[in-house]
Design a protein around this nucleic acid. Structure first.
Lengths: 214, 214
DNA sequence: CTATGGTGTTACCGCTGGTAACCTCCTGTC
DNA sequence: GACAGGAGGTTACCAGCGGTAACACCATAG
């Protein structure tokens, strides 16, 4: 517990050159992940950066730390895109569509990175798993909030919001995952089908469920 | 490529005692996974079975083979339970509810095993990932089929069925995943919320989407 | 008595994540 | 100018992993 004095999340104001080197190392790591996929190892990343292992460990503590920092970069960017899409002008459906599309677009652009984060990194480091799932969950959260505000529903319960957010996030994520193996299908089609699934077209005519207590 | 003469899936009619030993080894592996979680290694499994590594390798080829065999066992059982739930008497909603409940019940009973299959094994061996996702996808498939048959919809397109199945599967899986970290919530609540999400209550009053071409 | 085949072992390989010790050069201070 | 000191970097190592080769120990079959 005495190691890792500065976590990957806190933007500790350190010597500027150190932060620069950190960025360089992360970019090298990104290159390796993009090239080698799941076979990215600390040795390979160090070699790509033109240095040796111990430096990596000095900067990131351990492998999980590097993965976490790596995930942070991509997740920050992804979150920015999702937020931009979610605050588009338009109805709830249009905004949802834009957001789902933004997510799938990100997957499409960097499938290797996406796979790495989703499979390797998430399996290796619990925090990364939380981060990766968190981004999609947050998206689901905002979506559920928007729903309760716009769809003239009673404010949805806490548990319901959480479960729905997680469910929606998983839905989009799984569809994106599957889509990776079916690159012949255009992105727009997948988006359309997901939107159709979410907005009514699935259970149409079967509202035979007593609303649970809350 | 010259090794692994018999895959984990084909029930090769070998010497019967060999199959028995195989079952013994798998049970030992299960015990280790349940006890050690992600830290289960070939050495540990061999030790638990009272033997040494090479025997494991003679039986399963490599680590992926063992994982695959392990996944097969659990997935077969899970699939049986899901099928039973899906063929319950009752309307589509009730059957869907039973199936989701069966899935979450399985997760609840053996969270360690579930986590292992979902994270470790799926990340390590591509085939396992396909298997694990496959089980939930198959469930989504049957559900989508049932939908198109019962809900008086036009027979849904191939792509739509695939995307929906994957999406529904991911939804339930993600919710179950999240639920693992919130054991305070009763299973029934999660099931109810998921059913509510699937059947109409989400997009109520926002059918403002032109049905894509198909 | 010998061949064969399954069950089991010990001992090794290359590689991984991770660490300790050392070296070097640049900076600031008396 | 001399000297501490602290980055930045290296080599050399560790335990453990997945995986394999080689050998030993019975059996049963001819």
């Amino acid at each position: 517990m005495e190691s890792a004095p500065e976590g990957a999340g806190l933007p500790t104001t350190q010597s500027p050159s150190s932060n620069d080197r950190r960025e360089q190392l992360l970019e090298a790591a990104d290159r390796v992940v993009q090239r080698e996929g799941s076979a990215a190892s600390m040795n390979l990343i160090a070699a790509e950066a033109g240095i040796t292992k111990p430096i990596l460990y000095r900067h990131f503590g351990d492998k999980g730390g590097l993965y976490r920092a790596l995930a942070d970069r991509h997740i920050d960017r992804l979150l920015a895109r999702l937020r931009a899409a979610l605050t588009t002008r338009g109805g709830l459906t249009a905004r949802t569509r834009a957001t789902v599309d933004a997510y799938l677009a990100a997957v499409e652009e960097q499938p290797q990175v996406y796979r790495f984060l989703m499979e390797r990194a998430a399996a290796e480091d619990v925090a990364v798993r939380g981060q990766v799932l968190g981004v999609v969950r947050r998206f689901g959260d905002e979506l559920a909030d928007g729903l309760s505000a716009e769809a003239a529903l009673a404010p949805i319960g806490e548990t319901r919001a959480r479960v729905w957010a997680q469910g929606i996030a998983g839905m989009v994520q799984a569809a994106g995952d599957w889509w990776l193996d079916h690159p012949d299908i255009p992105r727009g089609v997948v988006v359309d089908e997901l939107i159709a699934l979410m907005f009514g077209e699935f259970g149409l005519g079967t509202p035979s469920l007593g609303t649970p207590t809350a």
